[in-house]
């Protein structure tokens, strides 16, 4: 599935399967959101329109307190837009959305394994299959051997990896990620980012990723939306034209990456001052 705005991405074709391209997999059409009524109306998101194709990776950056999370909440169906329409199109089955947050939100009384099984339990997946899939997912995030551990026994980075495995256990069509790595220390963050990028480049699920970290946005995403201060509009779209698979550590020395970073930074700086 070719990505909409990245044409030079030679590796995109590797993951392309037989399914037809779905360019408007997720579309926002003049979407606004706000709180309150009448004079007390507080606009948060103002007339946002975009489309995202199936398998695309979109990041949102913007000043603190702008409506980044609100946009994810709207896609998740947790908030309804006050105007406009959001369309999630899936030709195959009921649309599944998974949400990953900065904090792991694991259930502390469940083991790592049981936490990963939770979404499958809710969906009524048979016990044996559930167990096998959870074990496989934990292995995928590098936690084989930690299945029986409770969250209190795991480090921060490990807990977030369990959360990632649980998110993937939903087999989502769309992955919403709200600063998923922001609470980790710098070193752990790099490790988990690399792990996530590897998994994503293999599976190519549609991702919407909110972050404060510009380098993270550029390193992971195909397309970065720079949002304005509240009420949020899309101020700028940057498409990091970086080949995949990407190596996060090597990107620091990449000229295109650095130029994009500077460009993004200056846009955001002007935005933050308003």
């Amino acid at each position: 599935m070719p990505l909409q705005e990245v044409s030079s991405d030679a590796h995109a074709d590797v993951a392309a399967d037989a399914s037809p391209p779905e360019p408007d997999f997720v579309s926002f059409d003049g979407v606004s959101f706000g709180y309150g009524d009448g004079d007390a109306f507080l606009p948060v998101v103002d007339d946002v329109s975009f489309t995202a194709s199936r398998g695309s990776f979109t990041a949102f950056v913007g000043p603190s307190g702008c409506g980044k999370t609100t946009i994810l909440n709207i896609i998740a169906g947790l908030s309804r837009p006050t105007a406009g329409t959001v369309t999630l199109r899936s030709s195959s089955r009921k649309f599944r959305v998974a949400y990953m947050l900065a904090r792991d939100a694991l259930l502390p009384w469940r083991s790592a394994q049981k936490n990963v099984e939770l979404p499958m339990e809710l969906a009524g997946v048979a016990r044996a299959e559930r167990k096998a899939r959870a074990a496989r997912l934990l292995d995928q995030v590098g936690l084989a051997g930690f299945e029986k551990k409770r969250p209190v026994e795991l480090s921060h980075g490990m807990k977030q990896r369990v959360a990632l495995a649980r998110t993937l256990a939903q087999d989502p069509d769309v992955l919403l990620m709200d600063e998923p790595f922001s609470a980790l220390d710098a070193q752990t963050r790099t490790i988990v980012q690399r792990l996530f990028l590897e998994i994503w480049e293999r599976e190519r699920r549609t991702v919407f990723f909110v972050t404060h970290d510009l380098s993270e946005a550029l390193a992971l995403a195909d397309r970065v939306f720079v949002l304005s201060a509240r009420p949020t509009r899309i101020r700028k779209v940057v498409t990091p034209d970086l080949p995949r698979p990407r190596h996060i550590a090597a990107l620091r020395h990449d000229e295109t990456y650095n130029a994009l970073y500077d460009d993004l930074w200056s846009t955001l700086e002007t935005e933050a001052q308003q």
Binding site: A76, L78, A98, Y99, A105, P119, L122, Q170
Partner: peptide, 28 residues
């Protein structure tokens, strides 16, 4: 936990499932 609510909702948990899997356990 607010986050449990968000995550459970996006996992498609209905109210009864939420009570059984989350609320009862955390009340122990």
């Amino acid at each position: 936990n607010e986050e449990w609510t968000v995550v459970m909702r996006t996992m498609g948990a209905n109210r009864l499932q939420f009570i059984r899997k989350v609320t009862l356990q955390s009340t122990v």
